[in-house]
Design a protein around this nucleic acid. Structure first.
Length: 884
DNA sequence: ATGGTCACG
DNA sequence: ACGTACGTGACCATT
């Protein structure tokens, strides 16, 4: 039996694998943001080939670098190729590691390509005699190595699909012998490697010539026999090119290798290393194939023993550990109004579940829940607090919140489904709610079925299993304080605010609503009159038809689906046609009516006349909160008509006021502080108007010169632009100046604020090196696109790298303030009700007003110590509208 | 379900 | 040359 030798062209297979999976590039990333598509494809190929070949010796050859003996011969060799995408090059070191962990030798040699290494080794094998050689490549050129002893397999689409070349197959497919392939290539050249052959000679002519003459030398030896004048002319003119091309195409089979076949023993995988590698790459299917036992424990949905909790066995709970897992199951997302439909709790050895919510009132259960010394591990602490509070139970002792921890580790892992989060962290033994309850209209909770209780138990088991790992990961990220001192206490503070709710006067909204309805009817008539027909004004499609087809107004912007009718477009058209202004007015009124009048009226709780929003603590990428059902963070303020909505937001008691404090310019202060820019810090320290100060600087005004409102406006836009991650295009778009002017402004800005310039470039570098950015309090955001070869994705990631530490640190600051505030307000009747990113809103009894006026700004000011002071402004009044 | 629009910081 | 300002949620029309 001849020995089996397997030789693989590493670079070309990596390329093929990468582009085969290019569509799914985003699906193949590990938890650290590394792309893994080519690694994955490469490994699929290895699996298949190793199984098929069972080689005695194996080697994967790689290209050593850009310059080789071929580039010395011909400058342009492989010139004009676009750069290897970063998403691929970042994977190359891992492919080598993979290959070695699988027990296969890797090799590269300066000045030579992988082809030449493979060619030289096949020669050694053939000279030795007793070998069967298989070459795996993505490059057809290697088929020239085909011989009796050597087969070449070229990957087709999908990488694992291989086309096998034997000498017979080469002859059948290309019409020439393997050793003549270089002759063909000499004649026709190679566009992908960027070298020319003979003019006007392609596949067909080259094949005919070589079949007739055997080689390029043969053509010129018997030149008289060549037919066709034009062809003869070209052959004569391009003889040098043909000979050079032949040389370039020829694989060097005498490369000065420092290894030989004896060094290429295939040893099989180093199993522990390979398992570790698969784990780092998040390759679950490969892992499962390697180590089915480890997987059976974890990766398959398996039974968990539990008891149904009943009035009879409920006393057993008293003997549970001092640390338990707890899941309260609700019938609706909105935990303020939802009903409890199930409950699971227990410790590692004893799980209990029930669909009888009444059992929550049992004194044994209440005692456990309200005792802080019994630690609770949950999924979504805030939800759990509120749901239990609805029953009058004050949950205490929350320890681990799987949702919160997962969000802090990576804010992209923020699903509100236990199973989705658990799977992110490699724990599989739990199903999603959708898998158990169904989705959409079919969703129903099988309250009377064992599957339901089983599902709940699997949830708490997941929480229990992930606790140690996630705490360890938080520690690795230096996020222990972020979790314990900021986010976990925050959950309770937010729960209190949501439960408190804000009183909204329905009568006031209704009164405004009827006026708006009248106004809308008037505008409707007016618009129909000007359009000459009736149509649905709320339909961008129909409106576009009226404005641009019927009335022939100029088209300024298009959307994917048709004409854009967005405000900035309509504002440009308004001077030309009165109908446009009417449409703008109609839009404003209709927005107020549907979102803020009807919308808010729908969510006033009839029991207490209040609105209870839900803050989503684990949603945003930056660490901000968001607010839903309803969103109370976007109540109108910019237009007077809209601002009136705020007059319906009132204190819950008479003799109280709405009190509001906001951070002034918090994001720019954060920027001044983290960038260390002395000029910007000075402006803040001197208490200057930052936009005016910026205008002075970038427009070079003397200290006694007035900053005009226009200059201030422009400077303000630049300040905003910096915070958003500036680009000249974006700034121009937003301010209506030219892109060139925008660029000048930005350049001037960076000259005047050199610290900011340095910060911007350093933070982007940091992101490129680490794959993430951090806020003041170590909140982290991963930026998988930061090294993308796609300009758009990369640019977006770069802007995000600049913006996230600013926006996120501002979010950290107000969160800290809120936690301190909650403590400071103990013993007061004053209640913190709302948070709107840089603003806190309270209801304050008049009797406490004087004190609150001092306490609130003092706490907000001292939330963190920055290089420059924070500034807080406060207002109050009878309604939210009047707190200005 | 998705896209357009518009409300907020 | 590429074609964008950062972060959100609700409503409506359309598919």
């Amino acid at each position: 039996m001849p020995k089996k030798l397997l030789l693989i062209d590493g670079n070309s297979i990596a390329f093929k694998a990468f582009f085969a999976l290019y569509q799914s590039l985003d699906r193949f990333t590990n938890s650290e943001g590394l792309h893994t598509s080519a690694i994955y494809g490469f490994n699929r190929m290895l699996d298949k080939v190793l199984a098929a070949e069972q080689p005695d010796e194996a080697l994967v050859a790689f290209d050593a670098g850009k310059t080789t003996f071929r580039t010395e011969k011909y400058d342009g060799y492989k010139g004009g190729r676009s750069k290897t995408p970063n998403e691929l090059s970042e994977q190359m070191p891992f492919i080598r590691e993979l290959v070695e962990d699988r027990g296969i030798k890797t090799y590269e040699l300066a000045n030579y390509e992988a082809d030449d290494i493979i060619g030289t080794l096949t020669k050694e094998a053939e000279d030795t005699g007793d070998y069967a050689v298989t070459v795996i490549t993505g490059d057809r050129d290697l088929t020239q190595l085909t011989s009796k002893m050597t087969t070449v397999q070229v990957s087709k689409k999908g990488v694992t699909e291989l086309e096998t070349y034997t000498p017979d197959y080469v002859l059948e497919k290309l019409g020439v012998r393997p050793d003549q392939i270089v002759e063909i290539k000499g004649l026709k050249g190679d566009t992908s490697d960027n070298y020319p052959g003979v003019t006007k000679v392609g596949d067909k002519t080259a094949q005919k010539l070589i079949q007739q003459f055997g080689s390029i030398a043969g053509i010129y030896d018997h030149f008289d026999d060549v037919s066709g004048n034009k062809l003869r002319e070209n052959l004569l003119a391009d003889r040098d090119k043909a000979e050079l091309a032949r040389e370039l195409a020829t694989i060097n089979r005498q490369a000065p290798l420092t290894i030989s076949l004896a060094d290429c023993k295939y040893t099989g995988p180093d199993t522990p290393k390979l398992i570790d590698f698969y784990e780092r790459m998040d390759f679950k299917s490969f892992l499962a194939a390697m180590d089915p036992e480890a997987v059976n424990d974890q990766d398959v949905y398996s039974e968990i023993k539990f008891q149904q909790l009943t009035a009879k066995n409920i006393s057993e709970l008293a003997s549970l550990d001092s640390e338990i897992e707890l899941q309260i199951e609700l019938d609706d997302e909105n935990y303020h109004t939802a009903q409890i439909v199930g409950l699971a709790l227990g410790d590692k050895d004893h799980w209990y579940a029930t669909n009888d919510a009444e059992l929550l009132h049992n004194e044994v259960v209440v005692k456990i829940l309200e005792t802080a010394d019994v630690k609770k591990n949950v999924f979504d602490a805030k939800k759990t607090y509120v749901a239990l509070n609805n029953l009058g139970i004050k949950l205490a002792g929350v320890n681990f919140d799987l949702l919160l921890a997962s969000y802090l580790l990576n804010p992209a892992n923020n699903s509100n489904d236990v199973a989705v989060v658990a799977r992110e962290h490699e724990y599989q033994n739990v199903k999603t709610d959708e898998e158990v309850y169904g989705k959409g209209a079919k969703r129903s909770i099988p309250v009377d079925q064992p599957v339901f209780l089983e599902h709940l138990v699997h949830k708490i088991a997941a929480i229990s299993n992930l606790k140690v790992d996630l705490f360890a990961d938080l520690d690795k990220h230096n996020q222990t304080d972020l979790y314990w001192k900021m986010e976990l206490p925050m959950a309770l503070v937010l729960a209190r605010m949501e439960i408190a709710g804000i009183t909204v006067k329905a009568s006031r909204l209704e009164e405004m609503g009827s006026k708006l309805k009248e106004r809308m009817a008037e505008l409707e008539v007016e618009i129909y009159r000007q359009a000459g027909e009736e149509f649905n004004i709320g339909s961008p499609k129909q409106l576009g038809h009226i404005l641009f087809d019927k009335l022939k107004l100029p088209v300024i912007k298009k959307t994917k689906t048709g004409y854009s009718t967005a405000v900035d477009v309509l504002e440009k058209l308004a001077p030309d046609a009165p109908i446009v202004q009417s449409v703008l007015d109609y839009r404003q009124v209709s927005k107020l009516l549907s979102t803020y009048i009807t919308g808010l009226l729908k969510v006033i709780n009839p029991a207490d006349g209040k609105i209870h929003t839900r803050y989503l603590q684990t949603l945003t990428a930056t660490g901000r909160l968001s607010s839903v059902d309803p969103n109370l963070q976007n109540i109108p303020i910019r237009s007077e008509e809209g601002k009136q909505i705020r007059s319906a937001f009132v204190p819950s008691q008479s003799e109280e006021v709405i009190f509001s404090s906001d951070y002034s310019q918090i994001e720019l202060r954060v920027l001044a502080s983290i960038s260390g820019d002395q000029n910007m810090q000075e402006a803040f320290r001197e208490g200057e108007d930052i936009h005016a100060a910026t205008a002075r600087r970038i427009f070079g005004l003397d200290s006694n010169e007035q900053v005009t409102p226009e200059l201030r406006r422009q400077a303000k836009a630049v300040n905003f632009g910096i915070v958003y991650g500036i680009s000249d295009y974006g700034l121009a778009q937003n301010t209506g100046i030219t892109r060139k002017q925008a660029k000048q402004f930005i350049d001037r800005y960076f000259e005047e604020y050199p610290g900011v310039k340095q910060y911007v470039s350093e933070i982007v570098d940091f992101a490129k090196d680490h794959g993430y950015v951090e806020t003041l309090e170590k909140r982290r955001r991963y930026l998988p696109d930061i090294n993308s070869s796609n300009f758009n994705r990369r640019s977006f990631a770069e802007r995000t790298a600049m913006n996230t530490p600013i926006q996120g640190s501002a979010a950290d600051i107000i969160k800290k303030a809120m936690i301190k505030m909650d403590k400071a307000l103990e013993g007061y009747q004053t209640k913190m009700l709302l948070q709107v990113h840089d603003e806190l809103i309270f209801e304050v009894p008049l009797s406490e007003l004087d004190e609150i006026k001092k306490i609130v700004p003092q706490i907000m000011d001292s939330a963190v110590k920055l290089a420059i002071p924070l500034k807080v402004e406060s207002h109050y009044g009878k309604t939210w509208y009047d707190a200005k």
